[in-house]
């Protein structure tokens, strides 16, 4: 907003209104990250807390010793486990995001083109599961995917399979869980974008001789790109760090990065390595966000 309300910006109350949320976010959001950053450069110790301070007053040497230690990062990069875990997490998140897009795009498109009455009903139906417990919805899949679960029972009863399929504790189960949990996050931005499209554009395209498929590929799809990107990031980023879904549905021999971080912290009590994992994830995840914001900045008017 170019012309903001100057009068509201003046006055003593104004400073308080800014200061309260600001102070909260600084203390409980920014400072914690600085602490994580700091600990990721510390040395692990058997103590409480289990890491060495970066700054230490060395009594005998009578000077301040700065221990800036990159051991944790070196460990992450050299130990194959972390690299493969990270790659696996990104792969799972990427595949899930694509599946989510494949299912979510036609759904969002159908909702956006439905009559206003139906549109609200469909939106409601898409959003409603989101309001019920995420944990319980992931848990529901355990009952469906188990070896003696609903899906296997139904398929066996129908005579489609002889022996039950192994569905639970596989990558497939993780994809299903992520798509299932994050589908609304894909549909909503896509819908918000598609709903705003001027249908006259399609009429114009048809008038100029384009068949429906061409109109879709040349008009609708390019215009909906900001929605595709927004939805994909909303799914991809949390999916990389997903903890609950792989814990309940995923394979036990291949962990995802969120689980590794948690285990490193709680089971191994290696705070510096856990912190380094967190920082590494941040760097890998912050990049796509920045990229996205730049992309959006170049596309005025569309998206949001």
């Amino acid at each position: 907003m170019a012309r903001s309300n100057q009068a509201l910006r003046q006055g003593a109350g104004r400073r308080l209104v800014v200061a309260v949320p600001y102070a909260w976010l600084l203390l409980f959001f920014l400072v914690p990250f600085l602490i994580v950053l700091k600990i990721s450069f510390s040395e692990a110790r058997v103590a409480m807390p289990p890491y060495a301070p970066l700054l230490e007053w060395a009594e005998e040497a009578r000077r301040l010793v700065v221990t800036f230690n990159v051991d944790s990062y070196v460990f992450l990069l050299t130990d194959g486990l972390y690299v493969s875990t990270l790659l696996y997490s990104v792969q799972v998140a990427a595949i899930s995001t694509l599946l989510c897009l494949a299912l979510g795009y036609p759904m969002a498109y159908a909702i956006a083109r439905a009559t206003p009455r139906l549109r609200n009903l469909y939106l409601m139906l898409v959003v409603l599961p989101f309001w019920t417990s995420f944990l319980l919805r992931v848990y529901a899949w355990v009952g469906l995917l188990k070896t003696d679960g609903v899906i296997n029972n139904v398929l066996t009863a129908l005579g489609l399979i002889d022996a039950p399929l192994t569905l639970l504790y596989t990558d497939f189960a993780v994809y299903v869980g992520i798509v299932y949990s994050y589908l609304p996050f894909m549909i909503l931005p896509l819908y918000a974008n598609l709903e705003k499209h001027d249908l006259q554009l399609l009429e114009a395209a048809a008038d100029l001789g384009a068949r429906p498929v061409t109109s879709f590929l040349r008009i609708t799809l390019p215009l909906s790109l900001p929605g595709v990107i927004a939805g994909s990031l909303l799914v991809f980023i949390p999916a990389v760090g997903e903890y609950v879904i792989p814990s309940l549905l995923g394979p036990t021999d291949q962990l995802m990065i969120g689980r590794v971080l948690s285990d490193e912290f709680f089971a191994n009590r290696d705070w510096p390595v856990a912190s380094a994992v967190a920082i590494t994830m941040l760097v890998l995840l912050v990049m796509p966000i920045l990229l996205f914001q730049r992309l959006q900045g170049r596309q005025p008017g569309v998206g949001r």
Binding site: P21, L25, L27, F29, P32, V36, L233, G241, S275, A278
Partner: peptide, 21 residues
């Protein structure tokens, strides 16, 4: 940035950083 970052922050990171705080 601070107000919207938690929207995309993986929960494990938010949890870890708050605990350390």
């Amino acid at each position: 940035g601070l107000a919207t970052a938690p929207l995309v922050m993986p929960e494990v990171i938010t949890g870890l950083s708050l605990l350390l705080l």
